[in-house]
Design a protein around this nucleic acid. Structure first.
Lengths: 241, 241
DNA sequence: TAGCAGTGATTGTGATCACAATAGCGCTTT
DNA sequence: AAAGCGCTATTGTGATCACAATCACTGCTA
């Protein structure tokens, strides 16, 4: 064989479809709260903004609808869901069960490099400047949690957890904006610290407990938030039907 | 207002899209094992068989792919997945957590009519003729489980559980075919009876335990089955890459 | 005879068109 | 002035076409 001297400098070129890129772009926009809960997304408008035809966009939107990240209106338009108190609570309940399980496994299984990654993510979360945009805090928080869950080595279950986060995303970030990043970060820090300590000390039950407590705090915060802004959400619910 | 005398005899006409009908048809075919694990499904062939253009089919297939009911090959064709031992185990683990939770709630909350429905489903499962096709047993089994979960009154979590069943469907039915419906039905009957008794007696912990045991039995059966047919699955896995 | 290049058929992706349903809005009527 | 009516623009759905990548098969070569 000839040496092909330059072959190692070549990366395999991107082979993802246009549809996939559109999907990821919209998904990211949702996580970063570029769209508001309740907002209607139209295929042609997104296609124009993204500079593609409508085909990739309509498939991306359908994908997000199947994942329940977006909501199908009776007219078959899609919009960013306004989660009802019950929906949010049920999603959080599922999260407590699944993510608690993952935290437990992580405490049993986490190896050295994984522990290091979790600690790194924890430091990044703590060192986030308090007056930074909510989406940054949300991102750091997410990375901390998933650093733990990845240490559980259950890729299939990890894929079940991910869409739950995206579904909660827009409403959670809205929460940040309204209640203040500061207070939320302070609350999460305690649970994060407890989770990290428990994993380091290989105490599965304590790790599960810390993660569950963290999720429960989010859930209760949303319940309280909705009660206090009942008028606003009543309007949103009216648009439902 | 005029009386509109005939209005009550009119049902709202079907307003579902072609895509939706195609989706449900393929989904049902998968549950009934009309396609074999590992089989590749092509858009144009399905479109021809169903008598539509390719558009509804390609969207239906994508929907099923997003739900992980179908699997995307590197060539972007889709096929019926052959679940690895690990994947199946993880899905079952998630099922034990979520469905165990639902069984617990059902035991706390089930009202009279719901209890009646569960008992009805249980009778239907027991009375299924033993030499009936596996898909019938699977269907009755499914109805019994979901009768319980619906009594928990957590619609959002119910929607999380459903795709897990569809994903397991093809492989579970294949199990039925191979191990014999008889033995599997006998095994499930015990757990079903325990679950039913526990819910009737309002003992949440026992109900959860029974459902978890039922799922665990399925999980272990699949593990054993794969070990005994390692050669076959090795061939299937080779087709993966 | 084994292996490989070449060729035609098949596949999924993306663009464009046609169409029915819907929503928005101004006009007319009472 | 308010309610009802009808028009128009917009929206999602479905069909068809164009195209690049892939697959399967053939025939040639070493």
């Amino acid at each position: 064989m000839d040496p092909k001297p330059q072959i190692h400098s070549l990366q395999p070129i991107a082979r993802d479809t246009l549809q996939e890129r559109v999907y990821l772009r919209i998904r990211q926009a949702l996580i970063h709260s570029e769209f508001k809960p309740g907002q209607v997304l139209t295929i042609r408008e997104l296609a124009q903004k993204l500079g593609t035809s409508i085909m990739p966009v309509r498939e991306a939107l359908q994908k997000l609808t199947v994942e329940r990240v977006l909501e199908l209106l009776p007219t078959r338009s899609v919009r960013v869901p306004v989660l009802s108190a019950e929906e949010f609570a049920e999603i959080c309940e599922a999260r407590m069960l699944l993510e608690g399980h993952m935290a437990r496994l992580a405490a049993e299984r986490a190896g050295g490099p994984e522990l290091e990654r979790i600690e790194e993510a924890s430091r990044a979360f703590l060192s986030a400047k308090v007056p930074s945009p909510p989406s940054v805090i949300q991102q750091r928080n997410r990375e901390f949690h998933f650093a733990i869950y990845e240490a559980a080595h259950q890729p299939t279950m990890l894929e079940l957890i991910e869409p739950l986060w995206v579904r909660c995303g827009p409403c959670t970030v809205a929460l940040f904006v309204d209640l203040g990043v500061e207070k939320i970060k302070r609350g999460a820090t305690t649970h994060h610290q407890q989770a990290l300590d428990a994993i380091r000390a290989r105490r599965p039950a304590a790790a599960e407990e810390a993660i569950v407590a963290d999720i429960r705090a989010t859930s209760e915060r949303y319940q309280k938030y909705r009660r206090e802004h009942a008028e606003f959400f009543a309007a949103g619910a009216a648009a439902d039907r």
